[in-house]
Structure formats: structure tokens, C-alpha cells
């Protein structure tokens, strides 16, 4: 659709399930639903193993977004919501997940989810969401040992990058590769504030900078912004990035360079970390509830 093409900031939506797994063999079927400001995810786990997930845009109404994400994750699995023993809601709209048994903070869920996705050696998780940025330190079990969050300001969040994708007319999914099409790395945009960075960028464009160069300058500024956040918390290896921005190599590679650390790689959608952590907590809580009778 033509209208879709002009929306440079939109991510693709999709769902996935593990064809090798059968829910009928599982003792515990649990789910996590992460209703974020921009996108929502639902994850279903079978005995602590990832079984199916969905990732879609958040609509104007949190309960509907939660239901849609859950239904899409359930699609073609043969499962229905009734068979799921425990559901955890997380994210910005976590208290608005009507079928959730409990709401858990994103910080706790991202720590837990990253531990599953990247393995127990992960000590520092950077989650870059649509409207916030979280730095989390965890132990080998995925339990949070320290955290820091910025949700006051759009700098260093997905929203800031969307503003630039829109301004430059470069699709959000292409930002990474486009930002490396520069002869020499330009100095970072000097304003932290997205509004001021935008006027600075407009000035650079007028001064004849190609779009890619402006984009590179903004990616560096964003990387620098989150690195200061990470450094305040202290970075310990191994290091991983979750959330939408983790898919943006233009920011990731520049964060790695500034930190002098390589982020762990994973063959999973980095946006599902929160919902996945939620599903794993759901199982632990279901077990706890069973024990208590």
C-alpha cells in the first residue's frame, strides 16, 4: 500500500511458532504479553521453552492490543487462551491486559527474558524501547541487581529514531545500513534534545550534507546518549541489547564502538524479551501457586 510506504517509522508485524514442539506434551503452558507504547508482543512458553510469539503495533487501546497480540501468537498452534495456565502482562500498558493473572514491571521481565535469549552469562542488558531506555544488570538467573531508566525524554528512545527516519525519509528498517554509507564518520549531532537535534539536522541538510551523513551523525548522538546511561550503572560483560533499536545496526555498532564491547548476537526477535520474561515468570508463579495449593 502506498500509505504504508510513506510511513518510514513503522516496523513489520509478524508471528512465529516452533514447528518441532507440541503443546500437548507440556506440563506448563504460560504466556507473557508486553504492551509497549509502539509495539506489543505475546509469547507462549511450554515448560520454560519458547514455543510461539507475535509482534505487532500497539493500537490506540491497550486491552485490544493485548488481545490481538495474544490471538496472533495463538494462531495455527491449536491452542486457545483457556489452555494457558498463567498469563503475565508487562510493558507500558501492563495493567491493561484484561486476561493477565498478574502485571510485572518491564525491568524484571527484560532481565529474565534476556537471560533466556542470550544465556546465563549476560550481566548487562540495554533495552531500547519506543518511549524509554533501560539499563539493567542481572545475575546468572536473570534476577535484577541494578537498573536505571530514562522515560522522561525522547532522546535515546525509539521515538527519537522514528522522528529522524520520518525527517530524512529513510525507512526505519534501513536506518542501520544507510547510516554506514558515509565516506568518513561525521561528528555526532550536538543537541541531546530530539526537537533541537531535528533543527540541527535541518541545518545540516541545508548546508548540503547528504541524508546518510546526517543519519550517521544522529546514530552517534543516540549511541552516546545511551552509553552515558550505561556508564552511570556500570557495564559488566556479557552485554546484550533488546528492544526495537537492537535491530538498528547503525546505533548498535556505534554503542559497541564507544563501549569497546561487542553485544551478544541472537537469532530471535529482540523485541520479544519482555514478553518472554513475562511468560517465564508466569510459569514460576503458576508453580508457586500450585505448591501453595
Amino acid at each position: 500500500m502506498a500509505t504504508e510506504d510513506s510511513e518510514y517509522w513503522r516496523w513489520k508485524e509478524y508471528n512465529w511458532k516452533d514447528p518441532e514442539m507440541d503443546w500437548k506434551d507440556a506440563e506448563f503452558i504460560t504466556a507473557g504479553v508486553d504492551v509497549g507504547s509502539v509495539s506489543s508482543q505475546a509469547v507462549i512458553t511450554l515448560d520454560s521453552k519458547l514455543f510461539a510469539y507475535s509482534n505487532m503495533r500497539t493500537g490506540s487501546n491497550s486491552p485490544d492490543s493485548a488481545r490481538n497480540a495474544m490471538n496472533w501468537a495463538l494462531e495455527d498452534t491449536g491452542l486457545d487462551l483457556e489452555k494457558i495456565q498463567y498469563v503475565v502482562g508487562t510493558g507500558y500498558g501492563r495493567v491493561n491486559v484484561p486476561f493477565a493473572d498478574r502485571a510485572i514491571t518491564e525491568i524484571a521481565c527484560h532481565g529474565r527474558g534476556a537471560n533466556y535469549m542470550y544465556g546465563p552469562t549476560v550481566r548487562t542488558v540495554l533495552d531500547m524501547g519506543g518511549q524509554d531506555c533501560k539499563a539493567i544488570r542481572t545475575d546468572e538467573k536473570g534476577k535484577v541487581t541494578a537498573f536505571l531508566m530514562n522515560d522522561k525524554c525522547a532522546a535515546g528512545t525509539g521515538r527519537g529514531m522514528e522522528v529522524f527516519a520520518d525527517l530524512l525519509g529513510i525507512h526505519i528498517e534501513k536506518v542501520g545500513e544507510e547510516s554506514f554509507k558515509v565516506e568518513k564518520e561525521p561528528p555526532a549531532v550536538s543537541s541531546t534534545c530530539v526537537v533541537f537535534a531535528k533543527s540541527e539536522a535541518t541545518g545540516l541538510l541545508r548546508a548540503g550534507w547528504p541524508k546518510n551523513k546526517v543519519l550517521a551523525a544522529y546514530c552517534s548522538a543516540m549511541a552516546h546518549r545511551v552509553v552515558t546511561l550505561l556508564e552511570r550503572l556500570g557495564v559488566e560483560k556479557e552485554f546484550a541489547i533488546t528492544g526495537g533499536i537492537a535491530k538498528n545496526s547503525g546505533v548498535v555498532k556505534r554503542i559497541e564502538k564507544e563501549l569497546g564491547l561487542t553485544a551478544l548476537d541472537v537469532n530471535l526477535d529482540t523485541q520479544i524479551a519482555g514478553a518472554l520474561g513475562g511468560a517465564l515468570f508466569a510459569e514460576a508463579l503458576a508453580k508457586k501457586a500450585q505448591k501453595q495449593g
Binding site: Q131, A154, R159, G160, V163, V194, V195
Partner: peptide
């Protein structure tokens, strides 16, 4: 919202 960018979305809603 305490941020102009987030406040724009708040105004729209």
C-alpha cells in the same frame, strides 16, 4: 509528558 516529543503524541491523543 515532560518531553516535547512525547507531549506531541499526548496532544494528538
Amino acid at each position: 509528558a515532560q518531553c516535547a516529543v512525547f507531549a506531541e503524541s499526548e496532544v494528538v491523543s
